[in-house]
Amino acid sequence: MSYEIIGITVLWIFLYGYLIVASIDFGAGFFAFYAKMTKKDHIINQLISRYLSPVWEVTNVFFVFFFVGLVGFFPDAAYYYGSALLVPGSIAIVLLAIRGSFYAFENYGSKKSNLYMFLYGATGLLIPASLSIALTLSEGGFIVEKNGEVSLLLNALLTSPYSWSVVFLAIVSVLYISSTFLTFYAARADDKPALKLVKNYALFWSVPTIIASLTTFIALSQHNPRHYNEMMELWSMFGLSVGFFMIAMWLIFQGKYYGLAFISVMLQFFFAFFGYGWAHLPYLLDPYITIYENATHESMGIALIIAFIAGLCLLVPSLLLLMKMFLFDADYVKGEKS
């Protein structure tokens, strides 16, 4: 396997990791706010904060990892995306900054405020929406280079059915992933009232998720036929994805094996995300950046891969330790241990 393929696979795994952990976090923010508005916050908010408190910072790092790695492996991406994305990128940074810091202010400070809750909930939906735009742009047609200047075609972006279907998909998947995780976590904590509530959220959000996936498929076939056809070649990946979706729904509906159900959700997105990504190659930005022509030199690519493996040897045990302490320690989850 060439170092370019290893590089993009590593980055894609990180983006997938971010997709899962950040969705849990973003969706939980929205549910916390929604529960507060519908006066059900006493049922689930303690559950949410027990999970989120120790891990919010970790979530952020997945994202930083992805873009630092992208610049390292494919420096031209910094040039094209950097030049085109000043305004939307800055807005996304501000949203992330508000979310991260306000979470800490609310949680570690002693001030409880509805404004913080609102911003926390709102950014939970706005951030995935704005980040998903980067994926839309990568399909090509929105970033152009003329006379050595890279610019973004904002009107084309805002009027494209594809870009809106991706935004819609991003938001509903966040709520779907998050609610299925919270269902598992509530069952783990043996918190029956909370379980009943979040289980309904999970069943409810599964419907728009599958609809949005289909509309995005259709919109993509209009926008980038090459990518669409490549995805059709990989139909088995998407078939597996739908299969795991059905398993997850069936388990949650039956009300058992919530852990397995959440793993099925993770696999559902794993196959869809990697099917999408594999079909996307070799382009990182259609038609300007491909993983072969725009990768860094081999020496740097190999250095980054070695650094990555060494880093994983350090991080995986640490992450397992964190999960053992907070995710799988039944006493902690139940709130019987600080």
Partner: peptide, 12 residues
């Protein structure tokens, strides 16, 4: 990105 991305990556 080409030359000095290793420490940036390690920093993360």
């Amino acid at each position: 990105g080409n030359v000095i991305s290793l420490p940036l990556f390690l920093e993360t």
